[in-house]
C-alpha cells in the first residue's frame, strides 16, 4: 500500500492571517446524567497546524470533538471553524471539517464506493466530482479492488483506511483524527502517519488524538493536555516536557496522570 495524498492544494490553503482553524471559547458540556465532560475549555488551533490533543480515557477529548462536529450539543460556550459558527449556523463550519472517528462506524449495507459516494453527496459534491474523488481515494488507500464489497466484509485495518478516506472525501480544510490508529498494525500506522503528515504540509489543518505519545511528539507542532474536562497544559512537546520538568512528552503525560513510576526510564528497575 502506498498512500499518495490527493488533497487539492487549492481547497486546503487558507487566507494568511485569517481566522484560526478552530476557536473554542469557554466550552462547557454537561450530559443529562449530570456528568460535566468539559468545564470551560478554550482552545485555538491555527490554520495549517498539526495539533495533538492528549489525555487519559474519559478526559473529554471525544466530547470536544463531538461538540465541534455536531455530534454533541454544547451546554455553553462557542465553537468556530475558520471563523464560522459550528453550533447554531453550522453548515459552513461542517463543510470545512472531516472527521475520522474512533469507532468503526461504517454502514454495513453500503459498499466502499457507496460509502464514499453518499458521504460526498451529504457535503454537496456533484456526481462527477464524487466519482472522481472516490476513485482517487480508493486508489490512494489501496481499496480499489474492494470497491464493490460491503464495508462489513473488510478487516479492521481496511475499515480504518476507509474511514480516513471517507473523512477526506469532501476535501476538508480541517481534519479531525480521533484515535485513528487504534487496533492498527505498525506498518499501516506508519503509512497513515506519512500520509497525514503530507496532507498537513499541503495545508490541511490536523487535530489528532492518540495514545501513541511518541508519535504525537514526532508529528504534532503543538500539543494540549486535557484532563477532567479541562485543558491543563498547552505548547510544543518541548514546552510541555520543560513545564513538567521531564525529558519527553510521554513523561510529561505520565506526570499529568500521576503515574510517573511508569516512565520508560524506570523500566527494568523493579527487576534489578
Amino acid at each position: 500500500m502506498a498512500f499518495e495524498p490527493q488533497t487539492d492544494a487549492a481547497s486546503t490553503s487558507g487566507t494568511p492571517g485569517g481566522p484560526p482553524a478552530l476557536a473554542i471559547t469557554d466550552l462547557v458540556k454537561q450530559y443529562p446524567t449530570g456528568t460535566q465532560a468539559l468545564k470551560g475549555v478554550s482552545l485555538h488551533i491555527p490554520e495549517g497546524a498539526f495539533f495533538g490533543l492528549l489525555g487519559p480515557n474519559g478526559a473529554g477529548k471525544s466530547t470536544l470533538i463531538h461538540c465541534t462536529t455536531g455530534l454533541a450539543g454544547p451546554t455553553s460556550g462557542s465553537i468556530e471553524v475558520f471563523g464560522h459558527d459550528a453550533v447554531q449556523h453550522y453548515a459552513e463550519a461542517r463543510k470545512a471539517v472531516g472527521l475520522a472517528p474512533q469507532d468503526l462506524n461504517l454502514d454495513h449495507f453500503l459498499t466502499l464506493e457507496e460509502t464514499l459516494d453518499f458521504h460526498g453527496g451529504y457535503f454537496g459534491m456533484n456526481k462527477k466530482a464524487r466519482k472522481e474523488r472516490a476513485a482517487e481515494l480508493l486508489d490512494a488507500f489501496s481499496l480499489s479492488g474492494k470497491r464493490n464489497d460491503r464495508a462489513n466484509t473488510l478487516s479492521g485495518g481496511m475499515k480504518r483506511r476507509l474511514i480516513l478516506a471517507r473523512a477526506l472525501m469532501h476535501r476538508p480544510r480541517f481534519l479531525i483524527l480521533d484515535e485513528p490508529t487504534a487496533g492498527v498494525d505498525v506498518e499501516l500506522r506508519l503509512e497513515l502517519w506519512h500520509y497525514v503528515q503530507r496532507i498537513n504540509q499541503e495545508g490541511t489543518t490536523i487535530l489528532l488524538t492518540t495514545h501513541y505519545l511518541e508519535e504525537a511528539e514526532q508529528l504534532c507542532d503543538r500539543v494540549a493536555f486535557i484532563n477532567g474536562g479541562e485543558i491543563v497544559a498547552e505548547g510544543t512537546s518541548a514546552d510541555l516536557a520543560k513545564q513538567y520538568g521531564v525529558g519527553s512528552l510521554e513523561d510529561a503525560y505520565l506526570e499529568l496522570v500521576g503515574r510517573k513510576e511508569l516512565s520508560r526510564a524506570s523500566l527494568g528497575e523493579d527487576i534489578a
Binding site: 462536529t69 455536531g70 455530534l71 453550522y90 453548515a91 459552513e92 461542517r94 463543510k95 471539517v97 472527521l99 472517528p101 469507532d103 462506524n105 461504517l106 454502514d107 454495513h108 453518499f118 458521504h119 451529504y122 457535503f123 454537496g124 471517507r166
Partner: peptide
C-alpha cells in the same frame, strides 16, 4: 440500525439541516 452502528454520525456531522 444506524444508531447502533453509529453510522448515522456520518449524516449528523454533515451540513444537512
Amino acid at each position: 440500525q444506524q444508531k447502533f452502528q453509529r453510522a448515522i454520525d456520518d449524516q449528523l456531522s454533515s451540513p444537512a439541516s
